[in-house]
Computed example of a mutant assay.
Amino acid sequence: MMILGKKQNIWLAFLFMVLVSNYTLYNTGLGSSILPIETNGVVLGSLIDLVVIVPVLWMLYKGKFSLKQAIFLAAFGCIAARFIIPLEHLQPFVAVTWAGFAIEAILILLEIFLVATLVRYLPRILDDVRASSLPDLFSFSQAVEKQIPKHPVIQMICSDLLVLYYGFASWKRQERPGLTLHKNSSYIAFQLMIIHGIAIETIGIHWWLHEKSMILSIVLLIFNIYSVIFFIADMQAIRLNPVYVTDDTIYVSLGLMKRTEIHFDKIEEIIDDKEQLERKLSKDTIDFVARDFGEAYPQVILKMKEPVEVTFMLGIKKRYNQVAIKVDQSQEFKQMLQLRMSKQLA
């Protein structure tokens, strides 16, 4: 894993070198001194760098390759060329940059179409959520995937909808019964401290920054307001979504930050040895442990027969081989796990 990470950093270093060298060539005195009188060949080379080389290096760095991503990055390279290469040098190839703008416009229109599709099917999605017995964090995402094809933009919008719902529309909801993760921790106190810090920073920095750059101060203000709403929504989400257990699956979420579904027949081993629990968790272990002022350790680690998928904020998904969990009702949780697993083995 360390070797793989170093290789990925090399691709990022190469990408940075390509961008810096092209910017230096056209926008510094050193670059101007080495540019030939006839620059068409040099500009063509820069366009190849920005439209072909940079996208390839970025995909090598991320380790993900797709035609859509390649087209998007190539279009972005065309647009970047418009800002990096002065127009007097770029003039013979200006159509290439306009092609980049056209591709980006088409992609944006497709994203708008997806958003319109989400709005169109939203009543059906809400009906599915109301009809489901699962916690809203799980039923909502399942309803969206049922009604609308998976897409990163849709996932991001759905994450924002959850933030708005828990931030503004969930205050009359009653806590559902179940195993909780936060009551015996300082999780809520941490969230309140963060909100308090953001409020102080907004009051102090916003007025100072407003004198320097009004636009930047407004952007920062909007970001801080959204952050406060998010942390309030996260507190509501962890309060209203305790651990939910069915005959074959356990649904675990830690606020809006992360959630997963664990099938009992996929659990290979329950680790509850104190020495192992207090060790540093491995990279292939995801933890559902609420933050505390002191050191917080999981009560069990579930070793899986196959990797379990965990969904993070903005719909980002990763897979892990082990799941570390700490609940407020420790003995009840362990008894439930043993009972459900014994039924699966029977």
Rank of each mutant, 00 (worst) to 15 (best):
R239C: 05
L164D: 01
F230P: 01
V252G: 01
V327P: 01
F76K: 00
I301T: 06
S46A: 15
V252D: 06
W171N: 05
K343Y: 04
K172N: 12
I125N: 01
F293H: 09
F288L: 06
A105M: 14
L60F: 08
I198C: 09
D248C: 06
V163G: 02
L67M: 12
E275Q: 11
A143M: 02
I85G: 00
L60N: 05
I106S: 03
D265W: 02
K64F: 10
N321M: 11
A169V: 02
K64V: 13
V42N: 08
Y165H: 06
D287G: 11
D234F: 04
Y297T: 08
P36C: 10
D328V: 03
T180K: 13
S185N: 07
H263E: 10
L216E: 10
L134W: 07
K303V: 11
Q331M: 04
P177Y: 03
W208F: 15
I148C: 06
Q142W: 11
D160Q: 12
E111I: 15
Q147E: 13
K303Y: 02
S282P: 01
V245T: 12
Y251L: 08
S253T: 10
L90V: 03
V310P: 04
W171G: 01
D49V: 01
W171S: 05
K274H: 09
L164C: 06
A102L: 11
E145G: 07
S133K: 12
P242W: 06
C78I: 03
L179H: 07
S66P: 05
R319P: 01
G41I: 11
R259S: 08
K7F: 10
M2K: 15
S170C: 04
V52K: 02
V219F: 13
L47I: 14
S66K: 10
Q344Y: 02
L181P: 00
V243G: 02
E175K: 15
S227G: 14
K326L: 06
L15M: 14
S159M: 10
I53P: 00
L277R: 09
Q8W: 04
L87N: 15
L107Q: 09
L25T: 07
Q91M: 13
R319Y: 06
T117M: 15
P55Q: 09
C78T: 04
H151S: 11
R130F: 12
K212Y: 14
M235E: 08
V51A: 07
I71C: 06
G100W: 03
Q322F: 00
L216V: 12
R124C: 09
L337K: 01
F312E: 12
V144K: 04
L216N: 12
K6H: 05
Q322W: 05
L67S: 13
D49L: 04
V115F: 15
D292L: 08
T117W: 09
L161E: 04
V310K: 04
V228T: 13
I157Y: 07
P86Q: 06
K283I: 05
S33Q: 14
L60G: 00
R82M: 13
L4F: 08
I188A: 10
A199G: 09
F333H: 00
H151F: 08
F65L: 06
V327R: 02
S139H: 04
K146N: 14
S66E: 07
Q338F: 09
H182R: 08
I84M: 12
E145H: 14
F113G: 11
A75R: 00
V52R: 03
I71T: 12
E175Q: 13
Y61H: 12
Y226F: 15
R176I: 07
P55N: 08
L181K: 01
S46D: 13
A102W: 00
D265N: 15
Y61R: 13
I103K: 00
L12M: 12
